[in-house]
Structure formats: structure tokens, C-alpha cells
Nucleic acid binder design. Structure first.
Lengths: 139, 139
DNA sequence: CTGAATCCCCTCTGATACTG
DNA sequence: CAGTATCAGAGGGGATTCAG
């Protein structure tokens, strides 16, 4: 998962705001990781400390073991999570955030705060938008 | 696009870190919006001020008019973008960020900064991970 | 307990063509 | 110029099954 996105950065040159400059396609890669259905949830749970596979599975309600495996692999690949295998009879694997992974929780928390603060307004906007459309006769 | 995610918030109770509390499923909705392939790019370009449909299309390299329409609709629905139609012969439509939309650029910029600062480390981690796997004989 | 492998559905996304 | 409609391909993601 999380494919290459091997595109040019030409459009960076067309943007002239500070944050625009800082964005472009590269940031898209990070946002894909952060924006996917489970990664953030997993990272959040791992801030509590190392967790076993099944613990995470139980914590993140609704995730399938397939997706959990895939997400953890992706996170591990990006160096955000460290995987430790204990060679014992009933397999035992622990996952924990790397320093890089921990550093990500800061900006993400900022986004989380924004989300919490503005969720109501967003939902009101959605209701308003949806009502307007259904009333205007769209099937 | 951007579906309901009508799930319970039970798991919130199982988390005990501050940022963990603030997250959970709700934040997932925002992250889905932020994390999708084009929304952020569009928002970034709109920080420069109101833009016409075709301007955005030209700026965001590679986006299809279909996706642009869909994304703008989604952003409008969430109250992040305002759509203004000028009733003239060659249709003229402008899009601009709402105050809510502008406020989102702050936390997003934080994430963008993190991405820029850590992209090298992430790519190194990926190379390392990929090499390790190909060498260990995986087909 | 972990997690790889398969099957399958369904959404996202792009290409193309068509209206106002 | 702005937007919709349709079709087809790619990929995300769940359920289930098998293996170490």
C-alpha cells in the first residue's frame, strides 16, 4: 500500500504562499499515510507504549487482522513503528513507536484538536448543504 | 464521497492519553478529507485567494475535471469552501476558502512542516526496509 | 498468537463524450 | 467555461482459510 507517487514537483513553483511552498506532492505521501483509515488510530494507541498485535486489534474496534497487518507493515516501512518478535511458542510480537513515530503525534494532535473544535460546524454545514440539495428537487 | 463512518466512540474510553482522548473516530472523518488525494492541494492553492474552476484545474497538475468537481463539492459541503456562480455567458464560477477553511490551513501546515522535515528519514527507512526484504529471499 | 494467502465486493479515479 | 454522465480499470478492504 501507499504507492510511489513519482510525480514532478513543477507545481511547487506556481505557488507563492509560504505553506503552499512547503506542501506539494511530497507532503501528499505523508498525508496519505496519515489520512488512511487506520494508521492514525494505531499510532494513537501506540503512544501509550508497546503493544502486542492482538492488543491493538482489540483496541482498534472494527479493524480486520488483514488491515492491521498491512497498516503495521506500512508504518514499519516508513520507520514510524518498530516491530519486535519474541521467539516463543505462542508467537509474541510487540509494536512500538519509534522516535520518528512519536514526533508525528505532535502535528497530528494539532489536527485532531482542530477536528474536535470544528466538528460541530462541519456537521452543521453538511446538514445545510444536504437539505438544500434534497429540497431543490435533486433525485 | 466521504462516507458516514457511523461507529460508536466506545474505544475512546479505552485510551488514556490526552491526545488519544481527543482523537477516535471523529477525527478520522477530518483526516479522510485531509488525507485524500487532492483536497489539501486545492486548499493550499486557495489560500492565495479566490480562484476560478479552470485556474485550479491548471494549478493542480494531473487532476481530472471530474475529481476536481467532486473534491470541490465535498469541500463545499463541509463548509470549507464557498462557491460563487456568476451568471454570464461563458460560465464563471469562483471558489474561495471560508473562515473555517482558512483555519484548517494552520494545523495542516504543521503537518506539512513535519513532512518536509522528515521526508528524508522516511525515505531512508523505506529503502532500508525494502532492501532487507528483497535480500532475504522474498520473491 | 501472528500473519500470509485467496476470494470478492465496492469505491475511487481517470478517460471520454455530451449539455448549458 | 463549468459541469454532468457513462464506462472501465485499479485498488482498498472485509471474510475466510491455512501455516508457523
Amino acid at each position: 500500500m501507499i504507492d510511489p507517487i513519482p510525480e514532478s514537483d513543477e507545481q511547487c513553483a506556481t505557488v507563492h504562499t509560504a505553506i503552499g511552498q512547503a506542501s506539494c506532492k511530497r507532503v501528499g505521501q505523508v498525508l496519505s499515510r496519515v489520512g488512511d483509515k487506520w494508521s492514525i488510530l494505531i499510532i494513537m494507541f501506540l503512544t501509550d507504549g508497546p503493544q502486542r498485535f492482538s492488543q491493538i486489534k482489540r483496541s482498534v474496534d472494527g479493524i480486520s487482522q488483514r488491515m492491521l497487518t498491512l497498516c503495521l507493515r506500512g508504518l514499519e516501512r516508513d520507520g514510524l513503528v518498530k516491530r519486535t518478535v519474541y521467539e516463543v511458542v505462542p508467537a509474541h510480537v510487540e509494536y512500538e513507536l519509534t522516535p520518528l513515530g512519536h514526533s508525528l503525534t505532535m502535528p497530528v494532535a494539532g489536527l485532531g484538536r482542530w477536528a474536535m473544535e470544528n466538528l460541530d460546524e462541519i456537521e452543521r454545514a453538511r446538514d445545510h448543504f444536504d437539505n438544500r440539495n434534497t429540497l431543490s428537487g435533486k433525485k
